[in-house]
Computed example of a mutant assay.
Amino acid sequence: MPTLDLTASSVEITRAICDIPSVSDDETPLADAIEAAVSGYSHLEVIRDGDTIVARTSLGRSRRVVIAGHIDTVPINDNLPTRDVEIDGEAFLWGRGTVDMKAGVAVQLKLAVELTEPPVDITWMWYDHEEVDSALNGLGRLARNHPDLFVGDFAILGEPSNGEVEGGCNGTLRALVRTTGVRAHSARSWIGENAIHKAAPVLARLAEYRAREIEVEGLVYREGLNAVRITGGVAGNVIPDACEVEVNYRFAPSRDAAAAERVVRDVFTGFDVEIVDVAVGARPGLDAALAREFVAAVGATPQPKYGWTDVARFSALGIPAVNYGPGDPHLAHHDQERVPLAQIESVERGLRSWLTGS
């Protein structure tokens, strides 16, 4: 079984956990290594649910913070093992998972075992299956199986944020916009009705759509509505009788699911629209006392999170949450995924400063 040395630097811990492959559905070896590494510390109670590991303090503090990170990655594409690279004089660790989001997990692991007397109680969570269907998400499963673990006054998710604080997150909705026609031989196309041609107005409305910017609690979230897939066609000599355009709507956290659905249905008035998936966003939560203290301690200027993250799960449970982790989110899932070593160290310093009051 792979082993982890949590006395090493956060950079070296990042390297070690990245070099234990943990593509979604294959997290067990890394989960085993994490469980073994954090067990045996007298200040931590360790709980396991599937391939999710929880380590928490119970020091009787008046406030509790939840700090979480997922341990799975998207599939590897010749980008492991990790290696050191230098670009324009800056040192990076290159490889799958370095950005999304094992550098953040490495910082959390190091601090979890070192901070034995934090001023707040801390629940550390390292969970599985974030990169796949939401129904499999380890954080969601943990909330269902152990709701008592989700008691907290503030939460931090170590998603890549370039070492900055990103409050809340946008929501996301997927819909299918369908057109129908009549099949015919393509040599006599006038006999049929081409469903693909009928989808042209759908694409035109998408092309004409202008993303809105919506301010929520002082942060400006940028929305987006885009086609992400189109299907249709029967054979090379048949006029198609069906076409389907899948669209993705990213919406500000001021909207609930019903409001987001109304926006999409209004854009595609006159078409058959089916909502197939929706996940609401999370408000910034920066007005919470612990959030204000955290932002001040790390010296950050909060930014909005445009993508959906699991901060929304905490927000839904009434726990204000932010994203804070090393790595450029633009490089998440990229074949050239790489994290600046300086950002790993900076995030560690920021969290340590806040959690020790020094």
Rank of each mutant, 00 (worst) to 15 (best):
V322H: 00
D256W: 06
D256I: 07
D266W: 02
R183H: 10
R283S: 08
A282D: 04
Y221D: 02
V273Y: 01
G236A: 14
S254I: 11
W190N: 14
E274Y: 05
A187P: 02
V280C: 11
L225E: 01
V267T: 13
E244T: 15
I275T: 07
L203Q: 12
A242K: 15
S315A: 15
G318L: 00
Y324V: 03
V280Y: 03
A300T: 10
G233F: 08
K305L: 06
G285P: 04
H197D: 15
K198H: 15
V263S: 05
V280N: 05
K198V: 08
R229D: 14
P304C: 00
W308G: 02
W308A: 08
Y221H: 10
Y249S: 05
E208H: 10
V278R: 05
P284A: 05
F294W: 07
R205C: 07
G318F: 02
N323K: 00
P201S: 09
A187D: 12
Y324P: 01
L203V: 11
N248E: 15
F271A: 11
E208P: 05
A300N: 07
R283P: 01
V273P: 03
D266Q: 12
A207G: 13
R283K: 14
V264Y: 05
E193L: 13
I230D: 04
A211K: 03
V264R: 03
A297F: 05
S315Q: 02
V234S: 15
P240L: 10
E246T: 15
W190R: 14
V276D: 01
F314A: 01
A184P: 09
V238H: 11
V267F: 02
E217A: 11
A259Y: 07
V263W: 01
R212T: 11
L286K: 01
V202G: 06
D256P: 03
R212M: 06
P304E: 00
R183T: 14
A211L: 04
A259W: 07
V245T: 01
G285Y: 00
A242L: 14
E208Y: 06
V263A: 05
G218E: 08
A297V: 05
G233R: 09
N226P: 06
V234K: 15
F314M: 09
E223G: 08
V267M: 04
E274V: 14
G236W: 13
L219H: 10
A259T: 13
A242Y: 13
E208R: 14
P320N: 00
N226T: 13
A297N: 06
T231Y: 09
P253K: 09
A288Y: 02
S189V: 15
V238K: 12
W190G: 13
D277T: 09
T309I: 02
G270H: 14
S254T: 12
E244V: 13
A260R: 07
V216S: 01
P302S: 06
I319C: 03
D277S: 15
Y249Q: 06
E274H: 04
R313W: 02
V216I: 11
R255N: 06
L290M: 13
P302H: 04
E213P: 01
Y209Q: 06
L219P: 06
G236Q: 12
F251Y: 12
A235Q: 13
